[in-house]
Design a protein around this nucleic acid. Sequence first.
RNA 1: CGGGGCGUGGCUCAGCCUGGUAGAGCACCGCGUUUGGGACGCGGGGGUCGUGGGUUCAAAUCCCUCCGCCCCGACCA
Length: 480
Amino acid sequence: MPKDVITPRATDYNQWYLDIVREADLAEPAEVVRGCIVVKATGWGIWEMMQRELDQRIKATGHANVQFPLLIPRSFIMKEAEHVEGFAPEVAEVTRAGGEDLSDPYVIRPTSETIIGYFYSRWIRSYRDLPLLYNQWCNVMRWEMRTRPFLRTSEFWWQEGHTAHATEAEAEAETLKILHEVYADFVEQIMAVPVIRGLKTEKEKFPGALRSYCIEAMMQDGRALQAGTSHNLGQNFARAFDITYTDQNNTVQHCWTTSWGVSTRLIGALIMTHSDDEGLVLPPRLAPTQVVIVPIYKNPEERTRVLETIERITGDWQGRLRFKVDDRDNLTPGFKFNEWELKGVPVRLEVGPKDVEKNSVAVARRDVPGREGKSFVPQAGLTERLVALLDEMQTGLFRRALTFREQRSATVRSYDELKQQVEQGFAWAYWDGSADDERRIQEETRATIRCIPLEQPETPGVCVYTGRETMRQVVFARAY
RNA sequence: CGGGGCGUGGCUCAGCCUGGUAGAGCACCGCGUUUGGGACGCGGGGGUCGUGGGUUCAAAUCCCUCCGCCCCGACCA
């Protein structure tokens, strides 16, 4: 009998999400620290896989890792006008240390453009120093009013890339390269989450940026989640922090800078894209453990025989499959089946006395939950079969998510249609409105423009709000 | 910041209305039997009832203070 530990999605999507986080043992509320979470081993293991894949891509595109201080002089935050307005309300400050009040208080970094800008201004002298391509993995803090595990917490973990370039074109190329080659590639290929790549509107862009690009994903309730952002900061921060270089003509110029980040929020995206009422579902290429093996036996003799068989069939797995043998002796197989299902391990193998005799194993695939996803297969050729199965599951998860998004997306031609469509998913619409129009729509529908997709239609259409003809199409949705 | 809810073994909660020796389920420990979809029996350990004050012969229970957490809305990766 399964225990009712997870609220079905259809009953309460929000509660389902919280149940998954708890039951899959990803994280728990920190309780004693407002708005923060403790990321537990299963959750952090997933983040480490994300870090590994992202870090490879960040380095492959020419960046190196560095580490800046956690604390930033408060005065730094005040230097870029839009940036102050955007972040001042949500920074935590350190006003006292070493038993004394600080004459110049610090803020705990909400993001590091300012302190990095300060150092870049000292490091960059010549065009020969450019481009400067750095990234840092760290935690940041933003005093959020309402928090949810992974999606929005006061402290979160992320990477923030910060680069400086000689020209606007180079900065723009960098911003887009990160969006495509690092973020979209990782999220789609490894997380199996389809994304829309686009540009943020003025209202939604990063405080202090010239332009913000983003990737947007659709969750199972039809709402949008921003999965990553890449900002072309123009010369705004370079002016605020005097980041200048001398060019080939001996003229002093301001640099063009970029910043870009993805965070542990991706874990939230992962959950809300693939998981089901039985628990977490991990795409094979991201799963820290791809195959878990549950031995089944009634007595010590059987145990020995079964474990020997497992030893033999996993003999050529090193380097091909990430696996784990669950030989805990105090738990029944049934308990383990459910536990690994909750934790989202893509494939479970069961090896018992019958399999030892028949040279078979039971294979259960997580993307088809319960007994339906279970079949008995021969031990011969198992490794190849599993590698192929994982591959098939990876592709299948992506396709399933993409199909879902398409079913929940529609092009709308009137404001009434838009209102209806955002109730259930993405509304594609021609748009020629202002930031104020955007605000009014948000008030009335709770939906915002998620992005102006990079791929635009070739024929003009009529703006869904103003009625004016325009070439520009945008995506409206309610967002997390 | 507004609105609501809750603080009692590790967890979920009952007990409070109507004051009188602190309970249950789960988890944990020991032993035995079990083990192919969340095992069972027997035994056992563990709680200054969020904090401070008040009322009372007597407070988890009644009154007040403070603190914390969770949930729902407007802002945000």
